[in-house]
């Protein structure tokens, strides 16, 4: 059971709150669930009924796809240190997975140490993860969290032609960002959401347009894995929504 008091304006999250660990993983194989005939039958019905009012029908060629439950579980195991527990888990995605009706975030709460409060943010294109990050910050300010886990996922199968332009990711990928106050020896990465583009920040670009959902977060996880090279300020921008995020590595950059 997770309980929350009133949401009220609080100046900032806990003192040293930031990204403690970042993990990125590719999932080149289809989900284990994709081979389950009971699942396949259920999915076929769900999709047919979902598409019918739009005059669309499932693509008859074979589609397999990934499960955000399976991907999220692997990310949780990689990102959450042994013996630690998580208070909040936010799952951000845009393209649905092969279990479009499943409460995947609730399942991930069950497999995540600490049985965190968990929910999903979706239907916002590439901005879903930016909104999810905003929510991690918002709950850290007023929800009394010690640790939060942001999972940004995308998978590579859309078993129908939606009749409007769409980018289906080339590969199933996920990024996990563990937030909290750093333990001794950890490199904190402070996150903030400026209203305007700050001077002196390095713009992180998504170098791979075939990975619209995870792209820039994938790059961020890569940067966070590099050895320390003095203070840096990274800027992440979502061009659709205009959302900006800065990540300060290895100490405060003078503002």
């Amino acid at each position: 059971m997770r309980t929350f008091g009133p949401a009220s304006e609080v100046a900032s999250p806990p003192a040293a709150w930031g990204i403690r660990r970042a993990v990125r993983m590719a999932f080149p194989e289809p989900a284990a669930l994709a081979g389950d005939p009971v699942h396949a039958e259920r999915l076929a019905r769900y999709l047919a009924d979902l598409l019918h009012p739009y005059g669309l029908s499932p693509d008859p060629s074979e589609h397999v796809g990934q499960s955000y439950g399976e991907m999220g579980e692997a990310l949780i195991h990689a990102a959450v240190p042994a013996g630690e527990s998580v208070d909040l888990l936010v799952l951000a995605y845009s393209i649905p997975d092969l279990t479009p009706g499943r409460a995947t975030a609730t399942y991930l709460s069950h497999v995540c140490p600490g049985t965190p409060m968990a929910f999903a943010v979706s239907d916002q294109g590439t901005a879903s993860a930016f909104t999810a990050l905003r929510l991690v910050d918002a709950y850290a300010r007023s929800g009394g969290l010690r640790r939060a886990l942001l999972l940004v996922v995308e998978q590579n199968s859309l078993p129908y032609d939606p009749g409007i332009p769409v980018t289906v990711p080339a590969e199933s990928r996920g990024v996990a960002l563990l937030f909290g106050e750093p333990l001794p020896g950890e490199r904190p990465a402070r996150v903030s959401a400026p209203a305007a583009e700050p001077a002196g920040a390095e713009l992180l670009r998504n170098s791979d347009p075939s990975q619209p959902g995870t792209g820039v977060w994938w790059e961020l996880a890569g940067e966070l894995a590099r050895p320390a090279a003095g203070p840096r300020r990274l800027l992440l921008a979502d061009h659709d929504s205009g959302r900006l995020v800065t990540v300060d590595l290895d100490g405060e950059v003078p503002r």
Partner: peptide, 21 residues
Amino acid sequence: FAVGHHACASGLLAIDVAGRL
């Protein structure tokens, strides 16, 4: 955006999420 994965309890979640934001 959409918020959920609490099945029919997602309505209360959405009010809380909106308030926190």
